[in-house]
Design a protein around this nucleic acid. Sequence first.
DNA 1: TAGATTGTTAATCGATTAACAATC
DNA 2: TAGATTGTTAATCGATTAACAATC
Lengths: 231, 231
Amino acid sequence: MKRLKVSNNVIRRLPRYLRKLDELSAQGVTRVSSSELGKQLGLTPSQIRQDFSCFGEFGQQGYGYHVPSLRRQVAAILGMDRNYQAVLIGVGNIGHALIDNFCFSDWGFHLTAAFDVKPEIIGATFNKVPVLSMEELPKYLDEHQVDIAVLTVPKDAAVPVTQILTAHGVEAIWNFTNVELTEPNSSTIVENVHFSDSLLSLSYYVSERQDERAARAAREARRENSSISNS
Amino acid sequence: MKRLKVSNNVIRRLPRYLRKLDELSAQGVTRVSSSELGKQLGLTPSQIRQDFSCFGEFGQQGYGYHVPSLRRQVAAILGMDRNYQAVLIGVGNIGHALIDNFCFSDWGFHLTAAFDVKPEIIGATFNKVPVLSMEELPKYLDEHQVDIAVLTVPKDAAVPVTQILTAHGVEAIWNFTNVELTEPNSSTIVENVHFSDSLLSLSYYVSERQDERAARAAREARRENSSISNS
DNA sequence: TAGATTGTTAATCGATTAACAATC
DNA sequence: TAGATTGTTAATCGATTAACAATC
């Protein structure tokens, strides 16, 4: 597979393509053109063709794209068929929710174990995932292939746990703590899920709309006023 | 406050600025220059000054920025002092985790109520937030100011619940379902938290590194080989 | 064959970076 | 005052869009 100078923006669009292709599949659609896909995703046909062309030639002139095979290609690009092994650290509310509800296998991942410090849940099994003691973590990492760690520990534990993970060969972290783990000289791949960043963006957009509305109302009030004084 | 043609990229950086400023405050730092801030966030000083200049003049020549007042400005830009009212729909695992652990008030939000269909939790109160019946939702929305809805319902309920919300004046949704709610003609503001998109991006980066490593190994093996045949 | 639609090259647009006068 | 650092204008870079020959 081609894999050259792919921009971050392209990479962030790939999962959206995947989701849309799954949706089309579910509707029984087997064929789609870049212009139809663009319309449904709010992107231009050009952009969609450019994006795919980073990785190869998946379409056919005069026909478009075959939904199932394009889906397979996108899944392969994302690494969904590489059977990555994951562990989860910190079985609090969010950790527990992920174990129970997030279907790792749908995305090509296998969650093999969870770790926590609370004695009352160590030894338990949630959704077929065993909860082990944090003390066993280094040994576990040494003895098993672990490709990514899901980090759902409390704030203060984020950095020390990350040190254990990287010291024992984990190179990728899916970070749910609100702590910025990305260190300048580290080679660890960190993907952040910052709830608060997301909420604050939403807050910005809501505020922007409020302000626009207020500005419009003020303009209209002024116009109203002047038309009264003119009459 | 100025608010002109602000690009999406800028808006997404604002919460990061806020987080870094809070960190500096906690360390007792009261003064910071754009170059120091840039170094710590992996951005250029130019970009940081450009970003802030969208909203006003917050610094001082020869000095830099006063951390507490810049923090206040960024918070105001994000709308954190507008006291937005929120409700949460769907008290499953993720919804419950958010109610218990996500500190809405830290970000200027007030979570006033949660809604669910499960009789066994209706009437309960989690972390001071009452759980009401889904049937009460329309009436509640009519009688209270609700600025945003946190959507943590199962997949199938996402669209019908969204229709109730928009029909009763909710204009912004923080969407935790894996369903694309953004409709072309809708004016609702939707902010998505797509766990799977995030995980798949991570998966891409891990795959990319794997591939690079394999390519390097292959190159070295070839070189090794040729040097043997040359000796 | 004619119509449709791709992959790719060129043109445009927007975002980031650099430079610098203003000034604390 | 001299040094530091801003806010802003201009230059550069990269990403998106448009155009079109190739071809199913």
